[in-house]
């Protein structure tokens, strides 16, 4: 066992995600406290890996890893963790990190703490704050054993602390990657045609509280009066009430408008990732304990339909 901290970075189209730098910065702080090294792990070539403020960076280069492949990535990371026995393995709780972190935990029989908002060294190990239950409760957990996997929510730590220029050491895959059952076929770029919500200065954003497709019209009317465009949280898009191009959040788009008026969005961590930098956030929700009220600048515990209709009369 070592006291090293692994940070499993992620990249798409030759570019690392913000969360990779955020977690790399955290890894450095943790490694220092634990008396180990912060080691950035880059799976796949085709990306400049000399960009982290880590003590060292390992880049695994293999043709099978040129695009994210959950099966191949999981195998490579498993082999590296087995070989180096880090004290902590940090992932982003992201579309790629989520494919590997819990799998690795079950595969190796080591603990995993997900939805992590913070992680700190304590008593030779780590304590993790997990933002569970849609952001309504925070669990403080201490992973037992010699290795802990921690999957961190995007936006939890400053990215600057993870940016640097440590030269990466390229290695070949530590495992045989022939005979994979998953094969990358193609990348599907977003279809153009709809409005670009990232380019809007004002958004009226609707959540599950809007209740049904038939009520989107009310949000559209309000948006039109304000010179805004309607965006949405994930459940609204998954339900087919608005197209995927309108989705704000982790699996959608990041927006930073001057106005983000939220109708019936509770503020799960996944949504906050996409909008918390908006200049003015106003939230209307019937649940006075909705986590969004901890983030919004202004809030009202009220029926969104009544407020929206009253606003229409005044505008």
């Amino acid at each position: 066992m070592s006291n090293d901290v692994f940070v499993i970075t992620e990249h798409l189209d030759g570019k690392f995600s913000d969360v990779s730098f955020e977690v790399a910065g955290k890894a450095k702080e943790l490694a220092k406290a634990l008396g180990g090294q912060a080691i950035a792990v880059v799976v796949g070539g085709g990306v400049d890996a000399n960009v982290f403020a880590s003590d060292s960076t390992i880049q695994v280069d293999d043709a099978a890893l040129s695009q994210f492949n959950p099966e191949a990535y999981a195998k490579v990371i498993e082999a590296l963790v087995k070989e180096k026995s880090p004290r902590v393995v940090l992932f982003g709780w992201t579309v790629t990190g989520m494919d590997v972190a819990a799998w690795l935990s079950a595969k190796l029989g080591v603990p995993c703490a997900a939805y992590a908002k913070d992680v700190r060294a304590e008593g030779g190990g780590v304590v993790v704050s997990c933002q569970a239950y849609g952001g309504k409760l925070t669990a403080e957990v201490a992973p037992e054993g010699e290795t802990a996997i921690v999957a961190c929510l995007a936006g939890s730590f400053p990215a600057e602390a993870g940016q640097g220029s440590t030269a990466a050491t390229k290695i070949a895959s530590p495992v045989d990657l022939s005979g994979l059952k998953m094969k990358f076929v193609e990348m599907l770029k977003p279809v153009a045609g709809d409005v670009d919500i990232t380019a809007q200065t004002k958004l009226v954003s609707v959540g599950r509280g809007i209740g049904g497709k038939e009520n989107i019209e009310l949000a559209e009317e309000l948006a039109a009066k304000l010179g805004a465009v309607v965006s949405a949280s994930r459940p609204v898009v998954d339900a087919g009430w608005l197209p995927r191009t309108r989705q704000v959040g982790k699996s959608g788009l990041k927006v930073k408008p001057k106005l983000y008026l939220m109708l019936g969005i509770s503020g799960a961590p996944e949504h906050l990732e996409g909008m918390k930098s908006a200049e003015l956030i106003i939230a209307i929700n019937t649940d006075k304990k909705a986590p969004i009220f901890n983030v919004a600048h202004y809030g009202a515990t009220a029926d969104l339909f009544e407020v929206a209709e009253a606003m229409l009369e005044l505008l």
């Binding site: 798409l12 189209d13 959950p70 998953m182 094969k183 990358f184 990348m187 599907l188 770029k189 788009l253």
Partner: peptide, 14 residues
């Protein structure tokens, strides 16, 4: 599989 920003990846899985 969905990625942020409306990007998707297609995989063939046995």
């Amino acid at each position: 599989k969905e990625f942020p920003g409306g990007v998707g990846m297609k995989y063939a899985v046995t």
